[in-house]
Design a protein around this nucleic acid. Structure first.
Length: 422
RNA sequence: CGGGGCGUAGCGCAAUUGGCUAGCGCGCACGGUUCGGGUCCGUGAGGUUCCCGGUUCAACUCCGGGCGCCCCGACCA
């Protein structure tokens, strides 16, 4: 992509509405813009990142045997009354009325819809298990939307649902999903912890949250460096209300670390909570009618983008983890009015594109400083600098966003170095 | 919903006790200049001062009502 043609508005100043760094940088780097409180537009650069995150999740979900589908956001009231959640969800659910005065909810989650679908099609234990998932815009009329995209009223979620004939089957799928989640968050470049949690509005008796560690997180956890034990701060205080300062690991007796966390994923053991109420049943080996044993697996896709920035930035801007960076490389001709510099950059840009590299060319007639600042702000991991100075000694400069490390190489070496870096 | 803050050009801000043509920086357009970390100079465009009503000779400013946005809390896959 050429920057002269890109819709990529960056800002020098920090909009006063943004308090936390990810929100500030998402606005400044031109990833998002606000339409209303808790409602955001994804601009091209932000949307590329969102799609990269989606692609990682999709790959891992598919690898774990889940199948992607797409369910409606518009959901009839009657379905929600089957589970009683039309009342329970209450004001949190956005509602619309059609021309015949029929009520619909804008889906804040999809247990009812998916259970309705499966109960109509899956009648036998022979058809189980099945895991279905989707990427979808969810609507929740949050009491207080905040921190930009972190807690929005409209956001992108990956929600998956497993249906099993028994608890043993659910446990297997639950483990599979937990492993898929670990793979996903690792690939997203996160420092994260998995922690057992309460299950809130979704229900069931067991759930795990996946927390990306960040001091702006809305949650608080204790985790043990020595072993895997992790717990939510709230629950640890309930267990040991007296000890405020220190939390000792129950397993290895060491002092635990405290951290804030951003909830990027949540898995639930639902059991028969929805299937029972919705009479969603199948016939087992003995011909007996049984409700499906369900699990539910959510990931805040858009929230991941914000969380990644919270974990990876500096004073100059975003530092994208390689796997979700909108571009792998940015080519910076420092003076496009200098013909050799311009041509050199164009040639390199073309060469990289032909090799399948995701490359952004800053072909704007701007000063070097402006280009450096913008490149750092939008956080592309590898900068390739073409200048008269470098050309004079037949050298191309490669500079890494994260470490500032510099390589000065000839064109051929530069191409292979880039290949090695991305 | 309780508490707090804010609303003036795309962004960040200013405008004395109510008083002059509502300014400044950034950004934007044009011209020149400069060219390795947001150059410098000049010219210019851009405003329903959130909305409605009131007080007044006069309202960005005061009063009433409404709307919107942000923060803390409660809440929350």
């Amino acid at each position: 992509m050429r920057q002269t043609q890109a819709f990529m508005p960056t800002m020098k100043e920090i909009p006063s509405e943004a308090q936390i760094v990810s929100h500030q940088l998402m606005l400044r780097a031109g990833l998002i813009r606000k339409l209303a409180s808790g409602v955001y537009e994804f601009l091209p650069l932000g949307y590329i990142v969102l799609k990269k995150v989606e692609q990682i999740i999709r790959a891992e979900m598919n690898a774990a045997g889940a199948q992607e589908l797409l369910l409606p956001a518009l959901q009839p009231r009657e379905l929600w009354e089957e589970t009683g959640r039309w009342e329970i969800y209450g004001a949190e659910m956005m509602k619309v009325i059609d021309r015949n005065k029929r009520y619909f909810g804008l889906g804040p989650t999809h247990e009812e819809v998916i259970t309705d679908l499966v109960r109509q099609e899956v009648k036998s234990y022979r058809q189980l298990p099945v895991i279905l998932y989707q990427f979808q815009t969810k609507f929740r009329d949050e009491i207080r939307p905040r921190f930009g995209i972190m807690r929005g009223r409209e956001f992108i979620m990956k929600d998956g649902y497993s249906f099993d004939k028994d608890e043993a089957g659910l446990n297997i799928n639950y483990q599979k999903m937990a492993q898929a989640y670990k793979n996903i968050f690792t690939r997203c470049g996160f420092d994260f912890r998995m922690v057992q949690a309460g299950s809130g509005n979704i229900g069931g008796n067991l759930s795990h949250e996946f927390m990306a560690l960040a001091n702006t997180g809305e949650e608080a956890i204790y985790y043990c460096d020595a072993c895997q034990v992790t717990l939510k701060a709230k629950e640890s205080e309930e267990a040991q209300p007296a000890t405020v300062e220190k939390q000792i690991c129950s397993k290895c007796q060491k002092e635990m670390q405290y951290s804030r966390g951003i909830e990027v994923g949540h898995t639930f053991n639902l059991g028969t909570k929805y299937s029972a109420k919705m009479k969603a049943t199948f016939l087992d080996e003995k011909g007996e009618s049984k409700p499906y044993i369900m699990g539910c697996y959510g990931i805040g896709v858009s929230r991941i983008v914000a969380a990644a920035i919270e974990q990876s930035h500096d004073d100059h801007g975003i530092i994208w983890p390689r796997q979700i960076s909108p571009y792998q490389v940015i080519v910076l001709p420092l003076d496009v009015t200098n013909e050799p510099v311009k041509v050199g950059a164009e040639d390199l840009y073309t060469a990289l594109k032909n090799k399948g590299v995701e490359v952004l060319l800053d072909d704007r007639d701007e000063r070097a400083g402006v280009k450096f600042k913008d490149a750092d702000l939008i956080g592309i991991p590898v900068k390739v600098i073409i200048s008269a100075r470098g050309l004079a000694e037949s050298r191309i400069e490669i500079k890494l966003r994260k470490t500032g490390e510099v390589f000065k190489l000839n064109t051929e070496e530069a191409l292979s170095k880039i290949k090695e870096l991305i």
